[in-house]
Design a protein around this nucleic acid. Sequence first.
DNA 1: ACCGCTCAAACTGTCGACAGTCGTCAATCG
DNA 2: CGATTGACGACTGTCGACAGTTTGAGCGGT
Lengths: 228, 228
Amino acid sequence: MPAPPAATPAAFIQQRNLVDQVADYLTQAIIGQRFAPGERLSEVQLARDLGVSRAPVREAARLLESRGLLVSQPRRGFFVRALDAGELADIFDLRLCLERHAMERLAGACPPEALAALRRQVEMLCEASGSGDESRRIEEDLAFHRLLIASAGNRRLLRTFEDLAHELRLCITLITKTHEAPDSIAESHHLLLDALASGDGPRCREAIDYHIGVARDSVVQSIEGARE
Amino acid sequence: MPAPPAATPAAFIQQRNLVDQVADYLTQAIIGQRFAPGERLSEVQLARDLGVSRAPVREAARLLESRGLLVSQPRRGFFVRALDAGELADIFDLRLCLERHAMERLAGACPPEALAALRRQVEMLCEASGSGDESRRIEEDLAFHRLLIASAGNRRLLRTFEDLAHELRLCITLITKTHEAPDSIAESHHLLLDALASGDGPRCREAIDYHIGVARDSVVQSIEGARE
DNA sequence: ACCGCTCAAACTGTCGACAGTCGTCAATCG
DNA sequence: CGATTGACGACTGTCGACAGTTTGAGCGGT
């Protein structure tokens, strides 16, 4: 979790309730693959490990369930979400749906300052990409797409994307290695910006279709490569 | 919530945990406007009223929060979600995004049995519309759109729509009266089916844009009419 | 009359405990 | 030897209680 610059300062200070802390811990542990996919999580053991009671653990687990990181079976408890190839395709298809919509809303009506902010974000992404810190690169990449969608001005759309982003992180952990060159990453994102700047609707659509397609293929390839 | 005929018998038995029961009660109470928008819900009072302890109430409230029916403020509790005009527009814009995507996926590749199922659903909708039971009409209408999206074959897309549907119910409660003629409802839905059957992509898009636009306008009009 | 302060009531966050349920594994029966 | 049953252990669902915080009413000062 990139510790977003806290839309409201209070939100950051208020982080001190156990439910959120446990949720953050679990999120990190899951996308950091410290729990195996499909693994059962025991409430009591988690509570013991974290030094808290079961109530916050249960509530945090419900939160993660709504975000698609855990699944619950009645009377059996919570399990780490295990994605099959079909679910993976669905996730990227929904991502395409959301980003297409944002691109379309933005095409031709993209405020210059939004474009500038997106350009800055690409730079941060390149920097992260060069740093060798893989998880930072992933977060900066997601931050770019988050910004893209936020620029469309629909907060509900943004919330849906943020929910989905948790599952995307889960997908991305499946990738063994990308080691894409920083130049290539910069270029693929600049293609999106250029399309936006041109104001050409179909071109925007084509650009985002290609971009998401590449991301999806790299995950699918990884998961199929790891199959045998 | 129409208590679906329990796809699997086991699912019917399992409904007996308090969290789900409390969640159902709260959902009904909220979309039935038995709580005012923005009203604060006291955990202890709800627990007393329902004859359960606070734990299931808290977990149910978190569930409803993830569905957008409640919002929580740390240390202050849960409040019934109050929608302003902007959020309302966002919700319908996301709905458009999702249904467009489904229509597009279906255009040209819609299995005949899916089309048949959609036709049957329109008939049920007409029947409900003629019955004068408003809440039943709403559920059948949502069921149609749910089926439309389900036909696209993306379960993640469907889940997103179902989450959104809860908020749509919240929107629809704002409408004082629709009393649309059953014939008109039938026709507006048949337009969608005809577009699908034609396999013409742009026509599909136009049809769904129009359909959602009408729904949005009727809600927006209602909320603005009720303003003064 | 208006504003700030104090304090009690109510509420949320968290905890530990109990009861019922599920999975496991050994003993039993065909 | 395979299938069934029963008991044991671990775990989830639920509960009541305590501590710290928020709220709102009452009070005193301006």
